[in-house]
Amino acid sequence: MRYLFLAIAVLLAFFLQGRISVLGISPDLTALVVFYTGLRYGETKGLLLGIITGAIEDSLSLSFIGPHMLSKAIIGFSSYFFVSGGLLRWTPVLGIFSVAFLTFTDNLVVFLTKAMFDRMPALFSTALFVSFMQSLLNAPAGIFIRPKHVD
């Protein structure tokens, strides 16, 4: 049941991501699903979902497989390891910062890997702006995505 829920969540995230945009920038909803999974079900499951979601995202983005897979895996792993009590104890403010930081990291990892292994997908200043804006769009979700022990 849990896996079905996560599959539907990922599907919905992909669907909505293509429909919503603010200033031409969409919120990274798949990153939020992976963050949620990592935070609720542990780093292994977060990592696995990150890899699967990232691979789908890579195949959908006309790119080589790898950049999103790596970036989402980082989110899935670190959301539990750093935020859910492993290193830091979760609070709503930490939730906001961690979602913003991990979204920014996700973008940066994709940008850098594409720049290294393919070609630079945009100017660095544009990349920073896009990453920052997407982090801002994702950040409020950090209040609502909380670990199990907080519930």
């Binding site: 992909f14 293509g18 920038i25 969409s26 995202e57 959908l60 973008n107 594409k114």
Partner: peptide, 13 residues
Amino acid sequence: IARGIDNWTHTFF
């Protein structure tokens, strides 16, 4: 009907 899901590729569906 939708834009590409990636920030780094500029595509439309």
